[in-house]
């Protein structure tokens, strides 16, 4: 069975479990929405400053929300020692990495589908026509977050206090992705297009491709250590 078929099998299993439990998605959704309301009431921003701060605030919400999801990423495998059952099989460990990254990406995408329009409404941002382009940038950033997050979640899987350790390890590693995504979004909001942000966009794509490749190659050592 090849890598992608194995990854698809594992992804279907994770989606089915999430569909039945709904704990990760609901927690992430409510936490993300709650953060937006907190930001809305905490920051009394003048209309000309909102555009500058919007990407950073939005990504702050995604970071915290996504970290919640990552903390739950291997929960099904921790229960009943199911990770051992997976590791006993001839499964390519890279497939497990792809499946977990894909699963987390789908959860974050669903949360972002709600959170981004809600952010626009709460902060009364005018440029609704820019949402598709901002979504594209956000998805590239989200993919980077999920790729690095899956590797980090696997590294901290057997650690004591892993919920605490996870963001401490992940956030510094995430700086290039966050920086590139926020700068990209700022440029889109300022200029109305992605043309001027191609440098940052290339950096994001490069980051995603490099870390997906690294993840597939090293996940064997990461998950079995």
């Amino acid at each position: 069975m090849n890598l992608l078929r194995q990854a698809y099998l594992l992804l279907c299993k994770d989606l089915l479990l999430e569909l039945r439990r709904r704990d990760s998605l609901l927690t992430m959704f409510f936490f993300g929405t709650l953060l937006l309301f907190v930001f809305h009431f905490a920051f009394d921003l003048p209309p000309d400053k909102i555009g500058e701060l919007a990407p950073a605030l939005l990504w702050l919400a995604f970071l915290f929300t996504g970290t919640l999801g990552l903390a739950q990423l291997f929960q099904a495998e921790r229960d009943n020692h199911c990770l051992d059952a997976l590791l006993l099989s001839p499964l390519d460990r890279g497939a497990l990495f792809l499946a977990k990254t894909g699963f987390n990406f789908i959860l974050m995408f669903l949360v972002e589908l709600v959170v981004i329009p809600l952010f626009w409404i709460l902060f009364n941002l005018p440029a609704w026509n820019l949402i598709p382009q901002l979504f594209l940038v956000t998805l590239l950033g989200t993919l980077g977050f999920c790729v690095l997050g899956t590797i980090t979640a696997a590294i901290t899987l057997r650690a004591r206090g892993r919920e605490l350790l996870l963001p401490l390890v992940l956030f510094p590693l995430m700086i290039p992705v966050i920086l590139a995504t926020i700068r990209c979004m700022e440029t889109v909001l300022k200029t109305g297009g992605v043309a001027d942000a191609m440098g940052w966009l290339r950096m994001l794509i490069g980051f995603d491709v490099i870390f997906i490749t690294i993840g597939v190659l090293i996940f064997d050592s990461v998950i079995e250590s």
Partner: peptide, 9 residues
């Protein structure tokens, strides 16, 4: 004996 199974499957 009672491990290595997904409870929600």
């Amino acid at each position: 004996p009672a491990d290595h199974l997904y409870d929600q499957l």
